[in-house]
Design a protein around this nucleic acid. Structure first.
Lengths: 192, 192
DNA sequence: TCGTTTGCCTAGGAGAGCTAGGCTACTACC
DNA sequence: GGTAGTAGCCTAGCTCTCCTAGGCAAACGA
């Protein structure tokens, strides 16, 4: 290989390229070798920037968490109540649809300290912020946060893996109705 | 190698062993080589019974779908309304908790014809059967089925990947309240 | 200008997926 | 009971991935 200048690989560019690759071919196919090829570099050289193949995927996850938190924050600005709920939900689903590989990477479980330092905590804060419009106190609030997150993640996840494929009904419609239902149940949270 | 008798490998025993292995070490670590070691056989020999490593995982998925459908059917027997909803949900979550590898395998997307021939269709039928107690007509019924499935899958999935770990609140409690909420919203499904 | 660090390299080993081709033991049929 | 066919396993060997060790040269700070 005739290398005139250095490839200029950095951990950030690596994570970004890996994330793009994940969106194209799926996280499971994001390989150190493929990434090295993309930069016109030998695979061994990348271990100067990353610790392992798993480390690479964790970096994709952290990148994705941060990106998603930014989008959600933008979507949420100046909104409250159901408006905020819908904005959050749509930003979430949009991101997952546009960036399937990044979204899949977000699901790998980070070790506790990495998770605590990630943008995941911003997600949690914003989710709770939405619920302020519904006036729920603990522990109902935590239960509601968990249900919300479950619905979002579950829907998006099933939509992507083809779990809804067997029924002709538009998934956009179902999504809108799920948000209506979520709003309804949050507005009138059942007492134990 | 001194082979006294044949190992007696069949496709069924292979799928079962693979499923057990998946529960132990995770689907992503279910390897043809590891499975061959388990049977005291060379890896190349397994290609007589399976087409590829992917085929092996598909077999785990189909096995899991069938097993889960059986459990859900048992749990559902003689129940209706919220009783049926809770029984379904608990059978689902129980299975996922006891068999994390099998559950993860269930999420790989099957090609349409394989999916159509799988026990996945029984799941869909049973889910719709539950909703009969809530008297929903199309397309509300489809939307409700999708929301139910999303909530179940989302909750179980996040619980497993540690998405709820940062809050001390018991996940069992949150689960029970999510089912209450689901029952409430199904009983009073919001009109568009 | 001269280390020192940085960024890449080659070489190579372990393990996974998979194919090709061969040997053996069981089965069925005449 | 001999024999043909096939089922079930083998070895050999290819490619690919992950990762380590050790080397060399460009860029940079003093």
């Amino acid at each position: 290989m005739w290398c005139v200048a250095r490839a200029g690989v950095t951990a950030e560019r690596l994570a970004l390229a890996a994330a793009d690759l994940a969106d194209e071919v799926g996280v499971e196919n994001v390989t150190v070798a493929a990434l090295a090829r993309h930069f016109g570099v030998k695979d061994a050289s990348l271990y100067f920037h990353i610790r392992s193949a798993h480390d690479l995927r964790v970096r994709i996850a952290l990148l994705a968490l941060a990106e998603l938190a930014d989008r959600v924050a933008d979507a949420l600005a100046g909104r409250a109540g159901k408006d905020a709920l819908v904005a959050f939900a749509n930003a979430y689903r949009d991101y997952a649809t546009r960036h399937p590989g990044r979204y899949a990477a977000m699901q790998i479980d980070l070790d506790p300290e990495t998770a605590a330092a990630s943008a995941g905590v911003r997600h949690a804060e914003m989710t709770r912020a939405i619920l302020r419009g519904y006036r729920l106190s603990e522990p109902d609030q935590t239960d509601a946060v968990r249900m919300m997150h479950s619905t979002f993640h579950g829907f998006v996840s099933l939509e992507r893996t083809g779990g809804f494929r067997h029924t002709p009904r538009s998934t956009d419609e179902s999504w809108a109705r799920a948000l209506d239902a979520l709003d309804a149940v949050l507005s009138n949270w059942p007492r134990g």
